[in-house]
Computed example of a mutant assay.
Amino acid sequence: MNKILDDISKWPIEKREEFLKKVFEEKMGRTLNLEEPKSFSEMIQWIKLYYHEPLMGRCADKVLFKKFIREKLGEGYTAKTYEVWEKPEEVDLRNIPEQCAVKSNCSSDGNNILLVADKSKIDFNKTEKEIKENWFDRLKLHTNSFANYYYGVQPKVYVEEYLEEADDYDVLCFHGKPKFVYVKTEHFEDGINREVGYPMSFYTTEWEYINARYKGIPTKADIKKPAHLSKMLEISSKLSEGLPFVRVDFFENAGKLYVAEFSFAPWAGLRAYEPEAMDYEMGKWLDIVHTAKAEYVKRQDRSV
């Protein structure tokens, strides 16, 4: 905890490139090609390093993201927010609802989330200390990553309504077009082997099982088609307009559809696919040339 963390956002682009190439080779088992990326995973690294879109920074902030969803879809598509704390000294768990969820606005993968099913069971002093010391420290959050769209995000902690989430349905959209869905199941159930992970299963937009997976992650071929699939695809198309890639995450609660969050780099683009050919097929859907020639930063601009 006392280790001084380096601020990646202050690194020159050459240092970020060099370090990310080492990480990519370690995680993916192959060389990262940033000059002419071909696979989806390579293109995600390119986007993290070079692509600048203000909307991505806004939606990477899970507090501002909810405002964006209200603007695009209207009320009722996200969990209700009770409180937003912008500074550590504002944190007060004693005044939160009896049931709620406390979350960081710039974390993911289940980190910095407190699900409060019964407030009376909280160790207030210990939990508040953890939140104040770590959940606002930008060097310990995604604000200190290789994804440049996090660099302008102000760390916050927010309190939202407690919802018994079921399966997650994540729609992967390329240039505003939903291409396929993956479903996360059993991740809130007891007894799941956390080292192996909970099942993540790929399906087409017509709900046909795709025989592929993230390396080492279980998958299921018999998941029932969600009741709101057509609505998810419609909403995803609307929300992803103007973005080269985004994963739009949904969940259903009590028969109602909610938008959970955006992901611009699932698994940080550092989880291998089985078969590897899927990574390259997905790369065909993401037009980096078109992206680079848009009104945003170009690859040749070494001043990023």
Rank of each mutant, 00 (worst) to 15 (best):
R30M: 10
Y198A: 15
I235M: 09
H290W: 04
Y82S: 06
G269N: 05
K119D: 07
E206N: 08
K3C: 02
N134T: 14
H175Q: 12
K66Y: 09
E42P: 07
S263R: 01
N253F: 14
I235K: 01
W85Y: 15
D279I: 03
L49K: 03
R194M: 12
G255E: 09
C173Q: 09
I210L: 15
D92S: 13
N105F: 04
H52V: 12
E75Y: 11
T205F: 05
Y158M: 08
P244N: 07
V248N: 05
N33V: 06
E53I: 03
N193D: 15
I13V: 11
Y158C: 02
N134W: 01
N211M: 02
K220V: 13
W267Y: 07
D109A: 15
G255I: 11
W85P: 07
Y296P: 00
G110D: 12
N144E: 13
L73C: 13
A147I: 02
E53N: 14
D7H: 04
F65W: 10
I122N: 05
E281H: 11
F264T: 04
F250K: 05
K121F: 03
I113D: 03
Y151P: 04
C100P: 10
D92W: 05
G269K: 01
E71M: 08
T291V: 11
E89G: 06
E274W: 05
K48A: 14
E35Y: 05
I210F: 04
N2K: 13
K225V: 11
G76T: 07
W207A: 01
D279A: 06
W135R: 06
S201N: 07
K179P: 00
Y162D: 00
A265C: 08
F65C: 09
V248Q: 04
K225E: 14
F245Y: 15
M28V: 04
K156C: 09
L5Y: 14
D301K: 02
K27W: 05
Y77M: 06
N253E: 13
I113L: 15
E35C: 03
K80P: 00
V63A: 10
G29A: 10
V23S: 01
S9G: 02
L286I: 03
K3P: 00
W46P: 01
L257V: 12
S201I: 07
V171L: 03
K62Y: 09
T291W: 02
F251H: 14
L115R: 13
S9W: 01
D123M: 01
D170K: 14
T31R: 15
A260L: 14
Y209R: 03
K62L: 07
E25F: 02
S104R: 04
D249S: 08
R213M: 13
P199F: 08
I223N: 07
I47G: 03
W207L: 01
E86M: 12
V159K: 04
D61H: 07
